[in-house]
Design a protein around this nucleic acid. Structure first.
Lengths: 75, 75
DNA sequence: CCTGCATGTCAAATATCTTTTACATTCCTT
DNA sequence: AAGGAATGTAAAAGATATTTGACATGCAGG
């Protein structure tokens, strides 16, 4: 299971129905890669993450949210 | 060449001379991986980046700084 | 109905990151 | 001088991310 969630789908639509293909072109990866990241199939590279945040002009942390290992710390 | 710079070395020492080994243990990678990332030999995974930021209790963007493709935009 | 567009998905190949093992250097302490 | 701790580095193997090419679905319009 992945250590973070993301809001790419929401950001794409808030950005005027930007397609996965458009986003892929803008960040320099393939459509399949965007789809996989968006669905949480695997983690993006740090570079792809930065580029996505840049496209939407938001901080990286508002695209990807890390869910630390709170399992043992309780809260 | 890498698309970003990092301040891991500075953060480690500001955090009381934390060694590469200590940081590696805390984020769950090997000492060699920390050394390579710190020296910019390659990009860390998004997960490793998030964990490093968490260890130092700073936002991810103050550990890694993205240098967009300003090559063509001039400034 | 047919076409085009956006998306989901899969398998195989390639690229990139990470580990493991090993050895080197430097600095500090005894 | 000898020993330990921290760091640099390297090659091979392993794990993970990304690409390529392909085929499927659902939906909107002509």
């Amino acid at each position: 299971m992945l250590p973070f969630t993301n809001h790419i789908r929401r950001l794409r639509f808030e950005a005027g129905e930007m397609t996965q293909q458009d986003l892929a072109d803008r960040i320099g990866v393939t459509r399949q890669t965007v789809a996989a990241i968006e669905q949480g199939k695997y983690s993006p590279s740090l570079e792809a993450a930065f580029r996505i945040a840049q496209v939407f002009r938001v901080p990286l942390e508002s695209v990807f949210q890390w869910q630390g290992d709170r399992a043992s710390t309780g809260r």
